[in-house]
Amino acid sequence: MDHTRSSGAPVGVADVMTESDFPSRTTLDAEAAVLSEGSTDTPEVAARRWVTEHGDMLWRFAMARTRSSEAAEEIVQETVLAAMQSYGRFTGGSSERTWLMGIAAHKIADHFRRVRRAKSPGMAGISPDATCVCSTCRGMFTEDGMWACTAGKWPDLKLSEAEKKEQADMLRACIDALPPGQSEAVWMRDILGIPAAEVCKAMGLTDTNLWTRMHRARVALRSCLETKFGVRKGKGQ
């Protein structure tokens, strides 16, 4: 089954949401799908090529998540070294770019696991129960699966550049608060718009794993943003 967005917008999305809501954002060009299969590069030549061609992208990914140039340098370096070691095992299927992103995602998640262990009380992550967008209910749904409350309307999206930037910064803070592993998946899938099938391959997840992870993350992000927007409502309409 082909789940990639590059083959056109998913039927369902196109049916329900307009193209402008979810344009097919394949930031990874099809031509970037240079597979190492049949490549005669030595690992060192390949590694230099990765740094040249994908270094900027890896750096931005690591910087966006860690906001520390020391941590980002370590992550990019570890990514390239790990990729050299598993060079022979890269079988294609996803683009080389996405494959490297997947390795970087694991390195970033490891970095945050270390950081959180080091200062665990200081880092308040999003509670897994924080799914509700109202002040009075415990979860999103009642016991029989209906909405516990209807969420409030969010501030209009047709904002000034400054307001848009402020909201994007809030989203960034919310992504940072997700559990390691989820943040990286969100960054690859919902921020960079890498097709789901490629994210699965790069992160070693099945389709179902990814869907579940993304759904949990989106629900948590929604709840987190709701708090930041300050539009939490009481129970009922």
């Binding site: 049916d15 329900v16 949401m17 869907w211």
Partner: peptide, 11 residues
């Protein structure tokens, strides 16, 4: 709704 962002649903 969430899955629809990751994969096409049936019609």
């Amino acid at each position: 709704f969430s899955r629809q962002l990751d994969t096409p649903l049936s019609r």
